[in-house]
Design a protein around this nucleic acid. Structure first.
Lengths: 252, 252
DNA sequence: GTTGACTCTCACGTAACGGCAGGCAGGAGC
DNA sequence: GCTCCTGCCTGCCGTTACGTGAGAGTCAAC
């Protein structure tokens, strides 16, 4: 029931270096050594390692893990509560960032100019108050950035032309359908909503039904997006919005 | 239109040291210095800083930000796409961890013994295969851990007694209601479901309706949780499950 | 002319290891 | 007994994005 570092590393899925590190900082010292100085881990050491990895996976710093494990009076439940709070905060933050990045991509796709505030809106604590009016002037001109936005890309020129063509083709078809009088929740309209989603998924990012309905809401809530679609055909923004929602519901 | 480090730091919401650092690594060097060697930032520098902070907030490492900004041929959209993928992966991982921690807390609340696999299930890559049967024996006994679980806590003894009392009171009332024949979607049952949610929120962690319905599903899916409730009264697990769902829907 | 706030440049510290270098230890094969 | 290979040992530097001083010079106000 004694194991070498290498054996422990293999079964626990960590590196030898990690075990050395845990030994160094006193988080997990093997219960013995051979005459040659080799570390010898026994079953109790493995138990302790399991606990260490458990807390580590939940995001606790090693020093705190030492305290939790070594202090018999410490309450694991209390730590879990605190960690739950920390994780949910991080989770919310990440969700906002993902939403912001989707917004940015959607805007760049339509060549919509983001205001500096929007580019920064992902920063919860930024822009306190002391420089509301100033900030506008200061961060005002971002032409250079937007310009570079339109230039070279991971996609070659051909790809862009193809994306543009697909998009315009889709646009023509949905306009035709709308003007033909087909309702927004007709199978044809829903099919075009589905195409819209797959177009984004194929060329830009994984677009779930949930994300897509979020986009649809934004098309109505943000007048620049509304303008983009209304510019193609009057009433298109609302029509697309309804079709996307109808499609999402029917697929659920 | 020239600013000192301190001024820039204040408007941008970063520390002076951060600006020094960006200067050191060549990410953002002020366009000039005073005769005394003070850094002088102009508007163009602030523009660049904005871009830097934007990408930093999205999680890019500084070195990569340098490359993105300095390379006019780089495609911001491509980077955003990649970052979107990274973020969604992290998001999913975090969601799993939050779920795992909620599961662990719910189990410890009911004194349910988690199997080692479950304690590790948050580790996607752990436990490859080479030690399936071995692992069981090896990580088997965790009495010490579970024991400490029940001991001292952030809450004093009084708190625990109170939690226990509240919980038992709630238990008696829902059992009484169920045996009285009131349907699980009656206002009274839903009110008790609401109490269940608030009890968790008050003593353990923020429990949204979504989280609560997740718990309710688990009460039926996991036989140990089912047993916990069935042990109180036959049919209680299903009754509670239905009441929670009915309540969640009505509050939406 | 002195105070106090601000700035400068080193330069070490952080968390959790990764990744070397140089040197033993142990068993297999010759 | 000798060589070879693999595994183990102990340093110790590198990583990321700064934090936190130390010691010294600068600027504007009083």
């Amino acid at each position: 029931m004694a194991y070498t570092v290498g054996q422990v590393a293999r079964v626990a899925g960590v590196t030898v270096r990690t075990l050395h590190h845990y030994d160094e900082i006193g988080l997990l010292s093997p219960s013995g050594r051979t005459s040659a100085g080799y570390r010898r881990y026994d079953d109790a050491d493995l138990q302790r390692l399991q606990l260490v990895l458990y807390y580590r996976e939940l995001g606790f710093p090693l020093e705190e893990i030492t305290a939790i494990i070594d202090d018999p009076a410490a309450d694991p439940a209390a730590h879990l509560r605190r960690q739950h709070e920390l994780l949910t905060v991080r989770l919310k933050r990440l969700q906002e960032m993902v939403a912001a990045i989707e917004f940015a991509m959607e805007a760049s796709k339509m060549n919509i100019q983001l205001t500096p505030e929007e580019r920064f809106e992902v920063f919860g604590d930024f822009s306190p108050e002391e420089h509301e009016a100033e900030a506008e002037r200061r961060w005002g001109d971002t032409d250079a950035y937007r310009e570079s936005n339109r230039r070279a890309s991971r996609y070659g020129k051909e790809d862009w032309l193809r994306i543009k063509a697909e998009n315009e083709d889709w646009g023509r078809r949905i306009v035709a359908l709308m003007t033909s009088g087909a309702p927004a929740d007709s199978p044809e309209a829903m099919e075009l909503a589905e195409e819209h989603r797959q177009l984004i998924s194929r060329w830009f990012y994984e677009c779930s039904y949930e994300v897509q309905t979020g986009l649809a809401d934004m098309y109505l809530a943000d007048e620049r997006f509304t303008a983009y679609y209304e510019n193609i055909a009057a009433g298109l923004a609302g029509y697309l919005h309804e079709a996307i929602h109808a499609n999402a519901i029917s697929r659920a």
